[in-house]
Design a protein around this nucleic acid. Sequence first.
RNA 1: GCGCCCGUAGCUCAGUCGGAUAGAGCACUGGUUUCCUAAACCAGGGGUCGCAGGUUCGAAUCCUGCCGGGCGUACCA
Length: 586
Amino acid sequence: MTDAFLQQRLLDINSDLAERLGIEKTDNPENIVVDFSGPNIAKQMHVGHLRSTIIGDCICRMFEFAGHNVIRQNHIGDWGTQFGRVILGFWHLCMADKHGNPYYLSELEKLKEYAKDKERLEELCCKIRDRHEQDYLADVYEEHGEYGDGKRHFGPFLAKVASEEHDIREKIQPVYQFVSTLEDSVAGMGLSIPTRNSQKEPISIPYESLSRHITAMLQRGGHEDVQEREAWKIAKHDTLEQCQKIYDLLKVTLTEKDVRGESEYKDDLPGIVEDLKKLGLAKESEGATCVFPEGFLGKEGDPLPFIIRKSDGAFLYATTDLAAMKYRIGELKADRIIYVTDARQQLHFKMLFATAKMAGWLDDDIELCHVTFGTMMGTDGRPFKTRSGENVKLADLLTEAVEQAKRVVEEKNAELSDEQKQEIAKAVGIGAVKYADFSNNRTTDYVFSFDKMLAMEGNTAPYMQYAYARVKSIERKAVSKGIDIAAELAGIKKLSITEGAESDLAKHLIRYGEAIRLARADCKPNCLTAYLFDLAQKFSSFYNACPVLIAGEDKRPTRLLLCDLTARTMKHGLNELLGIETVEQM
RNA sequence: GCGCCCGUAGCUCAGUCGGAUAGAGCACUGGUUUCCUAAACCAGGGGUCGCAGGUUCGAAUCCUGCCGGGCGUACCA
């Protein structure tokens, strides 16, 4: 690389008025659908959603910057089995209301406590089941030979809930957990519970499959379930509101308009199954409707099914994903679809892609891409959980990160105002969580540690943010010394790069576009963080070796330019592409 | 059993469509503040790239086998 070339590139970047640091847009803009985040209804976002959410967001930002038309799709889990659990949860809320006792709270604790004590667990489950049966039967009536349930208590309760949604807000999540935990607990105990089938005939089913039974009935499209759907809407709205707060906190570019959940495809599901049957691809097998894509083998070497309808008639995520894919190709005109999920879903997506291909739903030029990532581990080397083995809520994790960052700020910079400290703590804490994730190779598991991610040394958010703050500090000092940076940079025609640190920094600055290209091509944010870390290191060396403001007239403009380009590049990378905040002072 | 991912310095990891003495960070050792933020910088030690073959002028990288770990493998997502 000649000096002339290097200087010309730096001057070109400096004079780029489009704020693109001299990086061109693509000549070939595509419609790129990115499916990411996808939290579940009635469950708070937990650490399991973090990676998909922020990696997916980064991918969107990178393709958008390249000039593509990115269509974000938050494929939330609001149909499927959770649906039945939410309804069952509401039923328990109703019964708790009737008894004047929120039994689900204390019983949830006990179910967890007795998890390893089979005898006591069984005793508790029997007690719960017996009360359930009594409550259910007390709410059933028969008139003129017609069998109905929920007319006395559950129906009116749901009507009340629909009109007083704020009252229910706090209760959905614990009761949902209660239902899930109860289901897990009673599995294999051989308990059964009375309910009805879709012909409104009384039947008895295994207790652990009650929520699935409800799901299946609702998916068959019972018109008498209007109330349940109304209540479910409240739960969904509530969950999304909580999620949006977290997206905003994380600086993730998802909004309500990007939400298109599983339920949006519910009316398409029977058609999907029919179409695949007509094409001769879907067959009945062990009561379920399955596609057997070529090349997928099960344990005994037999063909592996891609199940699109369960034996109880309910649809599942395979069906929904097929419907979503048709929508994205047909309505959104996707040229490329990127799915961002954990690596465990690889087989599902391989079979999904194979099925869509066999069905002829894919033009050859449509690219399907499954971007996977590893599990977040605790420092003990096991998947990151709380001490009691539960998923860590994302809201709690982020709060903790900001608090820990606040402590560091207090320690390092006690003289700042409270407001400044809080702002810095937020940028550093949230930034640290995101940066730690981005800087690790997507495909491998990574160990989550507050201590490491909040360290000032090494490839961390605070180190980057500090480097940025130091550049900004030079600018502030320049103003107080009466140096007009804008004027010096505008009039710059020729650079003077003599020191090794200057040249190292300069050469690195002109390679930003290359780093972005690499990161985007493989959907690997760590390529970008590696570049930015190198940049911060090279700047720090330069900062130490080459004084800027006291440099002679011959050197100062060049050094000011290097500072300015460093700041612009770091800010662009951190803010625009990674969604990590920078602060002017720290 | 089969499939996918991983195995690189004491620790955490980059580098993997072949290219020169294999790179960071942490930790460890020593040094640097009359000068723009020391949350920094500089210097140093430390690696048979899991093992064994093969392809190649050249392999951490590609191929085969093995060992070790993780995940998945019919009605959860």
